[in-house]
Write a protein that binds this DNA or RNA. Structure first.
Lengths: 342, 342
DNA sequence: AAACTTCGTGTTAGCGTTCACATTCCGCCC
DNA sequence: GGGCGGAATGTGAACGCTAACACGAAGTTT
């Protein structure tokens, strides 16, 4: 009795034998090499089909020195941006024949980032997509191996690493401008954590709109993206009756704000107008539905993969930045100053 | 002028040379093989350190036939469950020396699932974690290669594949029981999409609590997890004044419900009590703060990795199911029937 | 003291690809 | 019709690692 030889999955040589060609010809068919006679190609394809052959990517990576896997580093949060981008990246990568190895970091400090990177480098990923919206000034990105193609998403548009971003400053400007246009004068901003590059840029946009309009420039209230921090900010603002408008740096904080104002009997938008940021799916169902700034994360994901694959293809780490425009979504949390109760 | 030989990263033989041993000894040190003299081990470790050597995982996978990569299939949604589980899985896997290759599916049909699986199989992942809470009755999981270790999360607790789940029926029962205890009699349920196994189980729990209490059994309203669908359900319920309590199968739908009731002047919890499910971070900041059922996704993620690694280690695809208990989180969206306005 | 063990280490042969080069085939020109 | 050139295919050696076995130097038994 012979030992069962069909135990391991078919390899290229098995296909070659079945098609009566050499393994190299099989390889050529697989990689779309031009010089293969159509008849031979068909024979090989038939053998592949019949044996259920699948190329072994580990072997391919070893032999060729390049892998078809991308590394993705993201922030471990439920925020729309990172999550939506992750899905978009995965989808785009897969449709280009790449797979995505994901790593998440709890915070964007140098050490976590460097741990994640080395974990991914060890898997010999072909390139890195970094969603963590890290502030490049603390140079956490300098831990990147200089040869490794990399793209950042939602990061510093001035960074030394290629990246795709939404114009956060413009977003902040648009939100504030909208409130100014409604006649508001004192517009408070609840910003995100200071180590988030996006948070800072929204502040800049807000400030620019205010100075441009000659409006007062109140102190920024610093939140942490959470509804809780928005709520806390809202309780602070209860004792500031001259504040008729608030621009929250994301929708979650805006939600907390709405909650706090509701508890304190300050009606939105009658007494106070509120604009959020992100336009999460639930924003339209807050009480009241929230005016917000939408970012196209799906597009960012796609673009970043595109950028990365181009770098991988060319073999050089080019620096290129793509900036997308945000979009104002009007709902019921904003109204002209002094408007009658709705 | 010689060509630069230091171009490629150091390999095992380089370390071996530096430590004056054979590459096999380096391999032994790396894999914790017992029979290595401490002095030799130290010498090898020093060489590794000095050269900055990192094992090439592709080569290791090829030579050993086993990889240290897990495949993860998840649903492409912003729902708390899948996202939180994904992060927990990644964290647990990494701390056990594994990496996670992620794939997302738009829906849980046979074809998407099978595409994802074959994409991951091709990368020769050591095992699969499937978050898609697929109904096993349509046997979408039968596309799994029978030899591949696999674990499902949030899936059918009776499935032929090992899995970790929260007791959804109990959750549904607890939510409904809570409302019954407050004196409510007509408790409507807005369930999730029918192809979600969890949705069905919550319905069962709801129904059991009602029949047990001899309460009427209203028609289920079918939603799709979105706030919009909760909102639509809420508008339907406007014309049912005998309904004093609603159990929504997730917090997003509960949010839509709150919105609809607010628009129609039905006060929560004075006129209607509402219970949600998931306890998302924002639930405490809804208007009013939402009573909900909490699930420990982090624990599910950890447990599922544990289960999977055990299967991989033993080499057999055992079937084992772990069930965790949900937890009721009381807030302000529920009150005794006929309670005075708060 | 010869003959086993055991430990520590080295040697060799794969794993399934791709790459560089060698070879064969065939049509075409002079 | 012999020689040429490009298209089609084959051959052998990597890639960096692990597995299996071989081997010498100890220690242990008889």
């Amino acid at each position: 009795m012979q030992p069962d030889a069909a135990e391991r999955p078919p390899a290229m040589t098995d296909v070659a034998k079945a098609a009566a060609v050499s393994h190299q010809t099989v390889s050529r068919v697989l990689n779309g090499h031009p010089n293969v006679r159509p008849a031979t190609r068909d024979r090989v394809l038939a053998a592949i089909e019949q044996l259920g052959y699948r190329p072994n990517l580990a072997a391919r990576a070893l032999a060729s020195g390049r892998s078809t896997q991308l590394g993705l580093i993201t922030l471990n949060t439920m925020l729309l941006g990172p999550v939506a981008t992750l899905y978009a990246v995965e989808r785009a990568a897969r449709s280009s024949g790449y797979s995505v190895s994901v790593t998440s970091v709890g915070s964007i400090d140098r050490q976590s980032l460097s741990e994640s990177i080395s974990h991914l480098v060890q898997q010999s990923v072909a390139g890195l997509i970094i969603i963590a919206p890290v502030d490049s000034r603390d140079s956490a990105l300098t831990v990147l191996p200089p040869e490794l193609p990399a793209v950042s998403v939602e990061a510093d548009p001035e960074s030394a690493v290629s990246g795709v971003t939404v114009d956060q400053e413009l977003g902040g400007y648009m939100a504030t401008r909208h409130l100014l246009d409604l006649g508001h004068r004192t517009i408070v901003h609840i910003c995100g954590p200071t180590d988030f590059i996006e948070a800072g840029q929204r502040v800049v946009g807000w400030r620019r709109a205010l100075t441009e309009a000659g409006a007062p420039l109140p102190e920024v209230i610093v939140g942490d993206w959470s509804a809780q921090s928005g709520y806390d900010a809202g309780r602070l603002l209860a004792s500031a009756p001259d504040v008729t408008a608030v621009f929250a740096a994301n929708d979650n904080m805006a939600l907390g704000l709405l909650r706090a104002f509701s508890e304190q009997g300050r009606s939105v938008p009658h007494d106070v107008s509120i604009v959020g940021f992100d336009d999460i799916a639930e924003a339209g169902f807050f009480t009241p539905p929230l005016t917000s700034i939408r970012q196209d994360f799906a597009e960012m994901g796609r673009r970043s993969v595109e950028l990365l694959l181009r770098q991988i293809g060319s073999g050089v780490r080019s620096v290129e930045h793509i900036t997308l425009a945000p979009e104002l979504v009007l709902r019921e949390s904003t109204a002209p100053v002094g408007a009658p109760a709705g």
